[in-house]
């Protein structure tokens, strides 16, 4: 791994993963799922099992999205062209601005997301009705696809960056991306395993939502400009 590879692949890939990690529908759903299961008197082991099923579903959906994107991009001749990187950079800046403006609703209280209210109500009811590991797994898969409008851009950027690497490094890049993106869920899982009060986690998110929103949006905008300079020009 040389300095060019670090600056032109690994650094933007890590930034894309951090942006993905900052999107919080997955975290909200896991928070509700684990809290609700404890509320209906499920044992700690069962809560852990269902939460693990949810995280595994999230992991697999994210992994499939990245691998699928790499496959599609590998077929396209123009994946490494300056024009394609220009389009990706532009989209990243646009999505970054959208994140800054719309990701969280403008309510002072709570962490209400951009989701249409009908969809949010459905996800709320679906999460609360989850009783089996397989349902939790599907919920994890659904959390990735429900937020695709925002996470598609960092996924495609990461896939296109990984495409330039050799096979072994490509696998490492995919794993680095997915594991960084999964970090908030893993932290929440540890938080739950230790029996910590879930309200303190929700409170922390509510108090820092504007900061997280601005950082995620700004990071995506900076990433867009960075890729434009190093890849498109």
């Amino acid at each position: 791994m040389n300095i060019t590879e670090i600056s032109q692949v690994w650094l933007p890939l890590t930034a894309a993963a951090l942006v993905t990690a900052s999107f919080s529908l997955g975290v909200s759903m896991l928070t509700l799922l684990s809290g609700h299961l404890r509320g209906i008197e499920q044992s700690a082991a069962r809560v852990q099992k269902l939460s693990a099923g949810y995280i595994f579903g999230f992991f697999l959906a994210l992994l499939s999205s990245v691998v699928g994107s790499i496959y599609v991009l590998s077929i396209l001749d123009f994946a490494h062209s300056g024009e394609f990187w220009s389009i990706l950079s532009g989209v990243a800046v646009g999505v970054g601005l959208a994140v800054m403006l719309f990701y969280y609703r403008w309510d002072k209280n709570g962490t209400k997301l951009w989701l249409p209210r009908r969809m949010a109500e459905y996800l709320y009811a679906r999460t609360k009705a989850t009783r089996h590991s397989f349902e939790a797994f599907l919920l994890g898969v659904g959390a990735v696809f429900a937020e695709l409008i925002f996470i598609a851009t960092p996924i495609i950027i990461a896939a296109n960056l990984a495409l330039a690497l050799q096979r072994g490094q490509q696998i490492a890049a995919i794993l680095v991306y997915v594991l960084i993106a999964l970090m908030p869920l893993l932290i929440l899982q540890i938080f739950n395993a230790k029996g910590r009060r879930i309200s303190s986690f929700i409170k922390w998110r509510e108090n820092n939502k504007k900061f997280l929103q601005i950082v995620a949006g700004a990071l995506l905008i900076i990433l867009g400009f960075y890729l434009f300079i190093y890849k498109a020009m």
Binding site: M29, D107, G110, K112, L115, I198, S199, I202, K203, E206
Partner: peptide, 14 residues
């Protein structure tokens, strides 16, 4: 207070 916060905000998670 913590339980009250959770009760009040559960529906505002997403």
């Amino acid at each position: 207070l913590e339980a009250a916060y959770l009760y009040e905000n559960e529906k505002r998670l997403f």
